[in-house]
Structure formats: structure tokens, C-alpha cells
């Protein structure tokens, strides 16, 4: 500490607590809303303290009792879809980026630069700017309403490739030389040296990419019409617009809490990796 100013320290704590309270307030509201019957939202002002319907709401949403979600599949099924999507995207992106970075850093071959620039190009073509043609490609390949369609088109990753490339370049070349003198071929070197060294980076990327995959919205919205492939994030919006009269806020908020839980847990549990990963990724 540079100097001791108790009033300033107290002020800092107060501001932080205030900031956290304001930022956390919507979550409080969501948790509270998830514990009330839908009649609590018909008129007057929404409740600010917990009701007694929490478990009941959760069960109805989880099992989709009485088609409370307005679709034929349950929230548990849609969470499973989201989970598959998040895992395949995260693991897929990490795998193909590790392989491409390995090829670019440790091999010399014709068109190496071209390959690098092609990967770089994906950074400039987010799905949002080429919505319709990408949809057409996926449709023509017969990948609408499938897990492959939900995941494969999102798996290319320039940022992950760059991160691994940066990391590989920082590994001292004496290590590579030593491995080669010991007779390690390209596969052995990758498996026994690069992979173990990359564990921290992989974990950090996993957090970011799991969240990215779980939170996808536009893409599943475009390519799924079959409710069996709906994700939990998608269904919330449908609930908002489905009931013309009284919006079922208790059901919406129960679903919202379910949709937020997995990625928030991942961030909190893997906070160290996540923060490090974010900052490294942008270097």
C-alpha cells in the first residue's frame, strides 16, 4: 500500500459492493420470478422476494409438463442439445486449431503462408454477415436439423489457431532439437511434448469456447426447425412471443436460470484459466 487512507479504502469497498449489487440485480429478479406462480405477474408489480413455487416450476420446465414450454421437447432435452453443441464446438475448435498451429509452426511446405491467411480470413467472416449463403450451403449438404449442422460450421477458429501458434513459437527450439536427437518423430513430439505443455492453454480456451458454443443463438435459430434439435437458449425467446396475452414470466425465468447455470458454473470453477486465457488470446 502506498499510503493509508481508511476513508478511501472504505469508499472502494462500498462502490464495489454497490456495483456488484446493481450488476447482480437482474439475476436476483430472475431467481425470485422462478419461484412464483404465473399469476404473480398478471398485474401490479413483480415480486421481489421468493415464493413457494420454485420446485414446482423447475419440475414443469425440466419435464415440459403440460407443454409448458410450448414445444414438444423438455428443458432437460434442450439442455442436453446445448451441452452437445458446446462440447463438440469447444473440443472441435481446440483439436483442429492445435493441429493447424502444429503444421504451421513445425513444418515447412508449399502454400504455408496461403493456409495461414485462409485461416486468418475466418476472423473477418463471422456468421452474422453471411447468414443466408451459409444457410444455403448447410441446406444443400443436408445438414439442417442435425448435430453436425449445429456444430461443424462453427468449428473453424482463427483465434485458437493463433493462440496455439504464439504458444508453440515460445517453446525453446532446443527442446525440439533435443526431442529430435532422441529420435522423436512428428507424432511422438506432438503427443509427448507439445500436448502436455499446452494443457493450460487448452483449459483456458475450453472455458471460452464452451461458453461460446452454449450461448449460440442465431445459428441454431437458422438451421433448426425440428424441435428435437432446439437448444435451451433458443426456447426462451419463443416463450416470450408465444403467449399473446399473459407472458408466463415464471416459466421464462426458470428456463433462463437453467440456461445460464452451466456456463456460469464453468466460468466460476475455471476462473483462473479463463482470465488468463482471455488476456493471452488477445495478444
Amino acid at each position: 500500500m502506498i499510503e493509508n487512507r481508511p476513508w478511501l479504502t472504505a469508499f472502494r469497498h462500498l462502490m464495489l459492493i454497490f456495483g456488484i449489487a446493481v450488476i447482480g440485480f437482474p439475476i436476483w429478479i430472475a431467481l425470485v420470478a422462478a419461484t412464483h406462480p404465473s399469476s404473480a405477474f398478471f398485474s401490479g408489480v413483480m415480486p421481489l422476494w421468493f415464493g413457494e413455487q420454485g420446485l414446482n416450476n423447475f419440475e414443469r420446465v425440466w419435464n415440459n409438463d403440460d407443454r409448458v414450454l410450448g414445444v414438444t421437447v423438455s428443458a432437460s432435452w434442450m439442455m442436453w442439445n446445448s451441452f452437445i453443441m458446446a462440447m463438440v464446438i469447444a473440443i472441435g475448435k481446440i483439436t483442429i486449431s492445435l493441429l493447424s498451429a502444429y503444421a504451421i509452426v513445425y513444418f515447412r511446405f508449399p502454400f504455408r503462408r496461403t493456409c495461414f491467411w485462409m485461416i486468418f480470413l475466418t476472423l473477418m467472416l463471422p456468421v452474422e454477415v453471411r447468414i443466408l449463403p451459409t444457410y444455403e450451403v448447410v441446406a444443400r449438404l443436408g445438414m439442417l436439423n442435425s448435430y453436425a449442422g449445429l456444430t461443424i460450421p462453427l468449428i473453424a477458429s482463427a483465434t485458437a489457431t493463433f493462440l496455439f501458434r504464439q504458444f508453440f513459437l515460445s517453446i525453446p527450439s532446443s527442446l525440439v532439437e533435443a526431442a529430435r536427437i532422441d529420435g522423436a518423430g512428428p507424432f511422438k513430439f506432438f503427443k509427448d511434448i507439445l500436448l502436455p505443455l499446452s494443457v493450460n492453454n487448452i483449459a483456458a480456451l475450453f472455458v471460452i469456447l464452451f461458453i461460446y458454443g452454449w450461448n449460440q443463438y442465431l445459428w441454431p435459430l437458422l438451421i433448426t426447425t425440428d424441435e428435437d434439435y432446439y437448444t435451451i437458449v433458443m426456447v426462451i425467446k419463443r416463450l416470450m412471443t408465444a403467449g399473446e396475452g399473459n407472458v408466463p414470466w415464471n416459466i421464462i425465468m426458470t428456463t433462463t436460470v437453467l440456461a445460464m447455470l452451466p456456463p456460469v458454473i464453468v466460468v466460476i470453477l475455471m476462473q483462473k484459466f479463463f482470465v488468463k486465457g482471455l488476456i493471452e488470446q488477445e495478444k
Partner: peptide, 22 residues
């Protein structure tokens, strides 16, 4: 190296560059 790069490049071509061209 081409085999290592293939998955990334195929996805890039099919789902990024081709639609952008379209």
C-alpha cells in the same frame, strides 16, 4: 502438414469462404 491442416481448411472453405463468395 496438409493432413494436419485439412480439417480446418475444409471447414473454412466450405462454411466461410464459399458462402462469402456466394
Amino acid at each position: 502438414p496438409y493432413f494436419l491442416l485439412a480439417p480446418q481448411l475444409i471447414i473454412t472453405l466450405v462454411f466461410f469462404i464459399w458462402p462469402a463468395g456466394q
